[in-house]
């Protein structure tokens, strides 16, 4: 698309405007993030008097020291990791177990099953019946309440199906069947080894979903020892509830309020760190996932 013909004046103006506006937009996306990170490394006084606007002022690690003392954050971290790892393993397994048979043309009833699955994307029983079900199954206030009700996302099944359709040709199945391969063997020895790319994409989508989830924990869990990180964050960031132990020996009201505000910044940074560290390396998988999803099954 890049033209070797000399750019006309109007095109040059367009290009300059384009670079300028895009830079402006990128900066406006970046700025709030920089502001939070810089504030978290500044002193209580600098933040509460509004001196921080771009770089840390009066560099200090006070708020991080307080965050590291806050046990609920670490329990939440551990719980979130558990929900993420166990939940994602179940998600990916279920997604593949659902998607593979649905792509097989000789799978009798696949149209009915497909309809059963897709219909759940358009209609659901609602919050209350779901809550009652989880309660009647005895899952309320257990770790399973965050894992079993979300064992599968139908949208991801459809994405996985379109991957299978495009990468596993019918001929492969036919020749394997001639060699006496049954469906179990074909799935585990041939399909799954060929599915590494889609499994990577699914793992990422599901893992981020588990990590960021808070609402199911809010309605299904009472025991604070089971709370995922996001629910702990909700108390600190949204409800302004801070464990008094975090405040240490700060006694002046003004300082307490300042520190409480500062804690929000460092909490955000600590909570988002894993995602921010992993993100640059996996970004292209997410993009790939969106691309596969946009091809229609």
């Amino acid at each position: 698309m890049h033209s070797h013909i000399k750019e006309t004046r109007s095109d040059r103006i367009f290009t300059i405007c384009n670079y300028f506006l895009l830079s402006l937009f990128v900066l406006s996306v970046l700025y709030p993030l920089i502001f939070v990170v810089s504030s978290s490394f500044s002193s209580v006084q600098a933040v509460s008097t509004g001196q921080v606007w771009l770089l840390p002022v009066d560099f200090s690690l006070t708020s991080y020291k307080e965050v590291f003392k806050h046990e609920a954050i670490w329990t939440g971290y551990g719980n979130s990791l558990f929900y993420m790892v166990v939940g994602t393993i179940i998600n990916v397994a279920f997604t593949i177990l659902a998607a593979y048979p649905l792509t097989r043309k000789d799978f009798r009833g696949r149209n009915i099953f497909m309809f059963l699955f897709v219909f759940t994307m358009m209609f659901n029983g609602g919050l209350i019946p779901m809550y009652l079900l989880v309660r009647d199954l005895g899952l309320l206030n257990t770790r399973w309440a965050l894992i079993l009700p979300n064992a599968l996302a139908v949208f991801n099944v459809i994405v996985t199906m379109s991957f299978f359709k495009s990468t596993i040709p019918d001929e492969l199945l036919e020749s394997a069947q001639i060699d006496g391969c049954d469906d179990f063997k074909f799935l585990f020895k041939i399909v799954i080894p060929l599915s590494a790319p889609i499994m990577a994409v699914m793992t990422l989508f599901y893992a981020v979903g588990h990590w960021n989830q808070y609402f199911n924990a809010l309605i299904f869990l009472r025991d604070t020892n089971l709370f995922p990180l996001q629910l702990v964050l909700r108390d600190i960031l949204i409800q302004n509830e801070v464990d008094p132990s975090m405040m240490g020996d700060v006694s002046r009201m003004e300082d307490r309020i300042g520190l409480q505000q500062l804690l929000k910044y460092s909490t955000i940074v600590v909570a988002s760190l894993p995602v921010l560290i992993i993100y640059p390396f996996v970004q292209k998988h997410f993009v790939k996932g969106v691309m596969i999803g946009s091809l229609k099954g």
């Binding site: 279920f94 659902a98 099953f113 599968l152 469906d183």
Partner: peptide, 30 residues
């Protein structure tokens, strides 16, 4: 066909059970 492909139904059984319990039962519950 069902007899020949029974393994596919076994593979499919867990996700199907999930959908019936956690998606369709709440619809009944509604």
């Amino acid at each position: 066909d069902i007899k020949k492909g029974w393994q596919l139904y076994v593979i499919f059984s867990l996700p199907l059970l999930y959908i019936l319990v956690f998606k369709y039962f709440p619809m009944y519950g509604a």
